[in-house]
Design a protein around this nucleic acid. Structure first.
Lengths: 231, 231
DNA sequence: AATAACAATTAGGAGTGCTAATTATCTGGC
DNA sequence: GCCAGATAATTAGCACTCCTAATTGTTATT
């Protein structure tokens, strides 16, 4: 059965990569159409989006890493945003470093410009509810793998968070627990970029990941679910 | 169950979009590291990749559409590739149009530079076999939806091909049939960019899609499976 | 034959993205 | 205390990306 295609086809992982590449391409080209009317570029919107989620500010080198570009490129982009009054440069902890913060005008523009990827959100929404959950789960596996291999900077995902308690309940629809908001949740609620994320220790991450992947349930509820005040 | 997260979470489709955006980002930044050693840019590699799959050549406007950029941008990129001897400009059907073709040197470089997204292929490969198949299927649904809404140019996917015969066999592992190579195949072999693709009529696409999505099987094998010589 | 539509390019400008070099600052050893 | 070395950010210089608007030549329409 299907023996011929096993030999003539490219590996499935490579075809998936190609598909992700197609989506990456359209995201890039759509980004221009979404950003240009606001008088900015896709890269600039990206920076504003990152800074929105970082109320404490960030130094330039760290921003460059999050953007996936070199420090000079990040410096240029930030300079033009400062010139447009969308970003503020503050003195950093160090006298040689700077703290970057978004201005109210920048925040307003970021909120307005955040709608452009809606075309992709609508396309994702054609998937069945269960299929979306499975897709999100697979996506998280892929991103975590990229993070482990060092191809992507640390993401603020549930699965690497110190507040994540996988398999804390017998309930199949909501087996996990978030100790920050102290509430149960399911795979369909897993986050990829949570503002409240705090990285767990490497050992805890590995243990949680193992539990998450196998779907193992942990009975010891009370002692295992310290909320946000039980640090 | 999980009631709180239903209200405080962003919709799952939006989180999926964000995840796809993360991958798009790393693909873009890795593209530089993969292309630069070969003396080209990511955009140029992309053009070479597209031309590799188009042995009959292509006109500039069509290339621009596939690239998702404006015609002048495509013209610039092509010019620099011509200057590097990687692409050839030939007279087109029209005296105002041109035919673009890849040179042997361009083909060699494209083959060498095609390995850079391997880091993502490895990450995708951490998924279980079944999970990969499901992920590919979902990806295809998303891409097809983008295609229907006009957000992405026509892709050369099985599900829109005139040789595609979904559900032609009772075999769960290989229910489909490709009438071009005249062989059965399964979801795990679905292609997103097949060189042999020929678009089916809109009506046939809709019918095939319906059959593909519902998993319906079609018994009438002989009359339903004209091979590549039975046009 | 005049006009409109089309394919590609050119002009001009802001921005992206790199490496290498520079300036200012911090850190560690002696 | 002071100097070598590491760091944070910027500058310089270059090639390329990406846009809109205008241009040139060709084809289609009327």
């Amino acid at each position: 059965m299907a023996a011929i295609f096993d030999t003539i086809s490219e590996p499935i992982a490579r075809r998936v990569t190609a598909g992700l590449g197609k989506i990456a391409l359209v995201l890039r080209s759509r980004a221009w159409k979404g950003a240009a009317p606001a008088g900015v570029t896709p890269t600039q919107v990206q920076v504003l989006g990152l800074l929105c989620g970082l109320p404490d500010g960030i130094r330039l080198a760290a921003l460059a890493q999050l953007m996936g570009v070199s420090a000079p490129t990040a410096s240029d982009t930030v300079s033009s945003l400062v010139a447009k009054g969308l970003v503020l440069k503050e003195p950093g902890t160090d006298r040689r470093s700077i703290g970057l913060r978004i201005t109210p005008a920048g925040k307003a523009l970021a909120d307005r410009a955040a709608a452009w990827p809606d075309f992709l959100t609508r396309a994702v929404d054609v998937l069945e509810s269960d299929e979306k959950t499975a897709f999100l789960r697979s996506l998280i596996r892929i991103i975590r793998s990229l993070q482990e291999s060092g191809d992507i900077p640390a993401q603020r995902m549930c699965v690497t968070c110190r507040y994540f308690r996988p398999g804390a309940y017998p309930d199949d629809a909501g087996p996990h627990h978030c100790a920050f908001v102290d509430a149960p949740f399911g795979d369909q609620h897993l986050r990829i970029d949570c503002a409240e994320h705090e990285a767990a220790s490497t050992a805890a991450q590995a243990e949680n990941w193992q539990r998450f992947m196998t779907g193992e349930r942990v009975a010891r509820r009370a002692e295992n679910l310290p909320g946000q005040f039980a640090r």
